[in-house]
Amino acid sequence: MVSPNTDLAYDSKIEGDIIVSRLDSVVNWIRTNSMWPMPMGLACCAIELMSSAGARFDISRFGAEVMRFSPRQSDCMIVAGTVTYKMAPHLRRIYDQMAEPKWVIAMGACASSGGMYRSYATLQGVDRIVPVDVYVSGCPPRPEALLDALIKLQNKVKRTPSFKNLTA
């Protein structure tokens, strides 16, 4: 998705194809448009996650079609489905294995809050074990809602100073 990026500027006073910009915005521009998801497909929401990869919704328009099942290669974990207490430690371990920077989308009511499964076996919200960036409502959310969450996450990433820690 090409959006007007005010951080990038074309300087006409310098000859040649030169774009002047801040390193932060260039890095963020790269990060936002190639966000490889780690599909944590646990339950029903995983089917909508697969639908969003299908032809109609086509998540690749947002640069996030490269589903990597290896946590080492992915940037954004999409927790799609009910997280049970039995599954929670595995989820946390997979999150720990992901390389920085990393983001988490809690897709659906179950991942966000336990949803309709108020029971002894269900973790009441994945935010109890991993930090969540975007929550998506719905049971399950429609693929459009997931795409919206992805755009919201991209906007968040664009605002994040990537080199904050280097200068300190």
């Binding site: 207490y85 929670a88 430690p89 336990g114 029971s119 002894y120 269900t122 009441q124 109890r128």
Partner: peptide, 25 residues
């Protein structure tokens, strides 16, 4: 139905996250 408070199945993760199996609201 809400469950009874116990430890998570994985001790390492439980220590890191301070999460427990708690009674559901």
């Amino acid at each position: 139905l809400a469950g009874i408070e116990t430890e998570l199945p994985d001790i390492e993760v439980a220590e890191e996250t301070q999460a427990k199996v708690i009674a559901a609201p």
